[in-house]
Amino acid sequence: MLEVDDIKAFYGSSQALFGMTLKVDTGEIVTLLGRNGMGKTTTVKAIVGQVGVKGGSIRFSGRKIAGLPAHRVARVGIGLVPEGRHIFPNLNVRENLIATARPGADGSSPWTFAAIMRLFPRLGERLENMGDQLSGGEQQMLAIGRALMINPRLLILDEATEGLAPLIREEIWNCLKLLKSMGQSILVIDKNLSHLLPLADRHYVVDKGQVVWEGSSEQLKCDESVRNQYLGV
């Protein structure tokens, strides 16, 4: 579904990605792992058209998408839950959700307003609250719901549970389990290996703007040297 091949990216004259390569197949959950500042978020921004790419290629369902503006990337079927959530503070919960609503690229619409209410009942209690009146956990639920409302073929989550209370984190993980059971393709950045290992199909470990290890959950679980060298604090 998603193929990122040897891309390079810069912020001004500073290079952030040095030949990043990864793929996500249909129905897979794949992770990007690594310490802060190693290029994970830049990779996501490159995929969704928020950072320019020099060299290499990005393909989605066989179509070249590198260089497309972010709104056109969304229309081909990629939904983003960005780091920091970035919900609209001057819109209420209902407006945040319907602002992005559209059928999927194939015309299907499994994710409707009613479906999001069933997924996150807490949001149903906050429909008239403005975005900046929500707790951090509620904002994260809203950010996920907003991304699902475009009915994406691929959902990308950047630091999905960072800074959330334990009970809210559990709710987010349960949501991802449900999405996996529905066959949703997901690329996720997070630091919580205890939840990622049983959930994800494959993992990419990123260091200094490139992939230094890739493999299954079982392989990562058994490779203590990789965990210590690239994932330990």
Score class of each variant (00 low, 15 high):
44 V>H: 05
44 V>Q: 05
44 V>N: 04
44 V>G: 01
44 V>F: 07
44 V>A: 06
44 V>R: 05
45 K>N: 11
45 K>M: 10
46 A>F: 04
46 A>D: 04
46 A>I: 03
46 A>G: 04
47 I>K: 06
47 I>W: 02
48 V>E: 00
48 V>I: 15
48 V>M: 02
48 V>Q: 01
51 V>S: 11
51 V>L: 15
51 V>G: 05
51 V>M: 15
52 G>I: 09
52 G>P: 09
52 G>F: 09
53 V>K: 00
53 V>N: 01
53 V>G: 01
53 V>M: 06
53 V>L: 09
54 K>D: 10
54 K>H: 12
54 K>W: 09
54 K>N: 13
55 G>I: 12
56 G>E: 04
56 G>W: 00
57 S>V: 06
58 I>P: 01
58 I>K: 04
58 I>L: 03
59 R>I: 11
59 R>V: 10
60 F>S: 04
60 F>V: 05
60 F>E: 03
60 F>W: 02
60 F>L: 06
60 F>P: 00
61 S>Q: 13
61 S>I: 06
61 S>V: 09
61 S>G: 04
62 G>I: 12
63 R>E: 15
63 R>D: 10
64 K>Y: 07
65 I>P: 02
65 I>V: 14
66 A>Y: 01
66 A>K: 07
66 A>V: 12
66 A>L: 12
66 A>G: 11
67 G>P: 06
67 G>A: 07
68 L>R: 09
68 L>K: 08
68 L>Y: 11
68 L>V: 07
68 L>M: 15
69 P>W: 10
69 P>K: 09
69 P>A: 11
70 A>R: 05
70 A>H: 08
71 H>Q: 13
71 H>S: 10
72 R>Q: 15
72 R>A: 14
72 R>V: 08
72 R>K: 15
73 V>K: 02
73 V>Y: 01
73 V>D: 00
74 A>C: 14
74 A>W: 01
75 R>Q: 15
75 R>M: 08
75 R>K: 14
75 R>A: 08
75 R>W: 01
76 V>F: 03
76 V>I: 14
76 V>L: 05
77 G>D: 08
77 G>Y: 01
77 G>H: 02
77 G>I: 03
77 G>Q: 03
78 I>N: 03
78 I>F: 02
78 I>W: 00
78 I>G: 02
79 G>M: 08
79 G>W: 06
79 G>N: 11
79 G>T: 06
79 G>E: 07
79 G>C: 12
80 L>Q: 03
80 L>K: 01
81 V>E: 03
82 P>K: 10
82 P>I: 05
82 P>N: 10
82 P>L: 08
82 P>S: 08
83 E>W: 06
83 E>T: 07
83 E>G: 07
84 G>T: 11
84 G>P: 07
85 R>T: 02
86 H>A: 14
86 H>L: 15
86 H>R: 15
87 I>A: 03
87 I>W: 03
87 I>H: 00
87 I>Y: 02
87 I>E: 02
87 I>T: 08
88 F>G: 14
88 F>Q: 12
88 F>K: 11
88 F>P: 12
88 F>E: 12
88 F>S: 13
90 N>Y: 10
90 N>S: 15
90 N>R: 14
91 L>E: 12
91 L>K: 14
91 L>V: 13
91 L>F: 14
91 L>G: 14
91 L>M: 15
91 L>P: 11
